[in-house]
Amino acid sequence: MSAPASLTEPVFPPLAINPELVRGILVGFIKNEVRKVGFERVVLNLSGGVDSSLVAFLATEALGKDNVKALILPYKDSDPKSRSDALEVVAQLGIRHLEIDITPQIDAYLARVPEADQVRRGNKMARERMTIAYDQSVAWRALVIGTSNKTELLLGYGTIYGDMASAINPIGDLYKTQVWQLADAVGVPTAIVQKAPSADLWTGQSDETELGFQYRMIDQLLYYLVERRYTEEELKRQGFDEAFITEIMRRVRENQYKRRLPVIAKLSSRTIDRDFRYPRDWGR
């Protein structure tokens, strides 16, 4: 399979960004949202992919290298390149890191459920990494910083309470193709920006193969659908294939639950998040 042309093909113009402007806002966001809740540090799961590498770069710029800890948590089937790419980011930034092979704890559970398919196994790994990140956040008095981008969040291409879990997320409003632009601008190694996106939950896994479409096409469709609120008819007139539109719209709709807190049965006059509405930054 050919690598995605993340840097070589022209960017879809409406999703082209001024990286310096975005970088300034996101660095400010990390500083502000971490410090005003009484923290100085963040931990993140660094997979060696472009999303978590970008977040590591932004967090280091915001908080300083001594205040960022990268967790590198490979499983035995993980691509060794993921680990080496993550270590390269750690070395380049000079940040702290902790490496734990999660194979024993994953396999201890999987031995009990040998029938578990790839999705269940992948979810288990994502959630195992989450529990380690949250444990380290207490041990090191740090916030867990998230690495899910807007494309993934909209498509639900992530594990709820796994890689989707975090305290703050600086890149959740950037589409994947915008992540590529920003990552390139802030100095994420080109090899990381250009490699085929993968959740690396099993050998040879590829986002674009699994999703069935290329990110640059998905992002174009999402731009018209989400940002511009085009109707299905208008999307077709825009030249998008009907099956493509249907599938992406289905994913966005069916994964809405992953983007919300659990549904609470309403009983009282002030139910949390329905009519008990306070800002998260209450008093900060």
């Binding site: 960004i17 001024n18 402007l21 975005v22 806002i25």
Partner: peptide, 11 residues
């Protein structure tokens, strides 16, 4: 609140 990121220098 700032929003609207493009290639422009400002939001």
């Amino acid at each position: 609140p700032g929003r609207g990121i493009t290639t422009d220098e400002r939001l």
